[in-house]
């Protein structure tokens, strides 16, 4: 068995093209500023925040007080504190564009930014 063949380049180029396509779709949809931040706990929507009318502040949801969120004046939300081991949720940083999300899997929390018009799925791919 060989390490690589010439035809592999084609396969890899196709995969990269698919990735690029999804990225462009994603970027394109991201271009609009999100209006609401939705916080899901165990798959249930527990809080919906109007990002146009927020001031710098922190809060947590009653279901999971060990996770603290931060709100930004100009309409953004981020995970500030969490008791999870990997801190991926905090590393995801500030979310403000429609479609962005951050999740804390150990605490089963998902934060999703949605735009005002749509309550339906934002995008269905494949």
């Amino acid at each position: 068995m060989k390490y690589a063949k010439k035809s592999d380049i084609l396969v890899i180029a196709l995969i990269a093209a698919a990735g690029l396509l999804f990225f462009l779709l994603y970027r394109f949809l991201l271009a609009e500023k999100g209006t609401y931040a939705e916080i899901y706990y165990r798959s249930e929507l527990v809080k919906r925040i109007d990002l146009d009318h927020v001031r710098d502040s922190t809060f947590s949801i009653p279901q999971c007080p060990q996770v603290v969120f931060r709100l930004y004046n100009n309409g953004g939300i981020a995970f500030l504190k969490s008791d999870c081991p990997d801190k991926l949720c905090i590393n995801s940083g500030k979310l403000h564009l429609s479609g962005q999300f951050a999740a804390c899997l150990p605490n089963r929390i998902l934060v999703k930014i949605v735009s005002s018009e749509k309550d339906e799925p934002d995008i269905i791919i494949g």
Binding site: I15, G19, F22, F23, S43, E44, L105, L110
Partner: peptide, 19 residues
């Protein structure tokens, strides 16, 4: 499945990182 929400937005990152 764990989050109960399909994470389509993650797809491009996963394709490139997987590659």
């Amino acid at each position: 499945v764990v989050l109960g929400s399909v994470l389509w937005y993650y797809l491009p990152i996963l394709i490139f990182s997987g590659l």
